[in-house]
Design a protein around this nucleic acid. Structure first.
Lengths: 184, 184
DNA sequence: TTTATTCGGGAACAATCATTCCCTATTATG
DNA sequence: CATAATAGGGAATGATTGTTCCCGAATAAA
């Protein structure tokens, strides 16, 4: 079932919610219509499950990227680089479910909207904590405003996903080098 | 007809392409089904016209915001502030058609994809030019990398629209103050 | 072995969609 | 004045949508 859900995630990322029909879903998940409706109440429930699976996976990827850094500054650098990676190429063209939800569903679907803003808040807090960690370990100056900088970095990461989905090359090293000036 | 198109823009911004039915469109544009199909070949053509109208309007708004600045640095500051304004509140919740297209259509609609990336490139070039202007007038240091910084600022602006659509408050002054460190 | 029970599959259904067709005013043309 | 042409309106249409219902096979229980 989890592997079927992974395939659902992929379809929703590529096509969005409304453009994905039950037919697309059953084809991708390799299940018959009846089987899908036996496992989930309706299309919306499939989507919610896919969304949760996607955010869990992404969160783990981001955190493990951060963990590869020796101090706060390097950890943030790794997080940004990881976002660039995931926003480019095939993975980037597939897109981000969080961004997709924010844009396509957030306005008319309260349940999804709540999860999206919760996820964004989590991401922002994670970055803010890394900044404070960096200030504690001396790799980031004290005068950097953790909250404001974290919010701007949230915009940067979400923006990368939009730009990447539009197929513009991101040039990771250069982009991240510029962004790191925010920690000076 | 232009006022009808303005109303179409609004619906597409709020609901996206696929979630907007011809019924929604005719109701918003205050035209009957037949009239819409007499003016446009199909739904896709309505959308393309709406998209073009939207980008023209936004471009003008952004450029006039820039024009209110006395030098390159202030012009960029005004552009960023203008983006924050438009990404917040009612206008922010309505969303950006360019971001919406990039996320919802870009993958499966070559015509839209081309226009989206052209528009993003235009925005990026505009910022890059402002940076170079600032370097010429002395308000921005020479060592700032115009292209890399412009691309990052493109990510920032598009990211603001995503975050704003998700209803997170942006706190413009603070956010822009942090972003201006990129021009130090 | 026989009988329940579960599980996946797919036809059938009503609703909604984008689109076409035709009708009726209104304006322009002769 | 008569008539051609245009523009707008809305019912009809066929395709597609999400959802439900029921069937058959496989497994568990008796």
């Amino acid at each position: 079932m989890d592997t079927a859900l992974d395939r659902a995630v992929r379809v929703f990322r590529e096509r969005g919610y409304h453009a994905t029909s039950i037919g697309d879903l059953t084809a991708a998940m390799r299940l018959a219509t009846g089987s899908v409706y036996k496992a989930f109440r309706d299309k919306h429930a499939v989507f919610l499950a896919a969304f949760e699976r996607y955010t869990a996976l992404r969160q783990e990827q981001t955190r493990s990227a951060a963990a590869r850094g020796a101090n706060g500054r390097e950890q943030i650098r790794n997080v940004l680089l990881s976002y660039v990676e995931h926003s480019q190429g095939i993975e980037g063209r597939r897109g981000c479910l969080v961004v997709g939800c924010a844009v396509e569903l957030s306005a008319h679907d309260a349940m999804v909207a709540a999860r999206v803003s919760a996820q964004l808040a989590t991401n922002e807090n994670f970055i803010a904590d890394l900044i404070r960690d960096g200030q504690a370990d001396g790799s980031i100056p004290r005068h950097v405003a953790a909250d404001g900088t974290a919010r701007l970095m949230l915009c940067i990461t979400q923006g990368m996903r939009v730009v990447g989905k539009a197929r513009l090359p991101l040039d990771g090293e250069r982009l991240v080098a510029v962004a790191m000036k925010l920690l000076a």
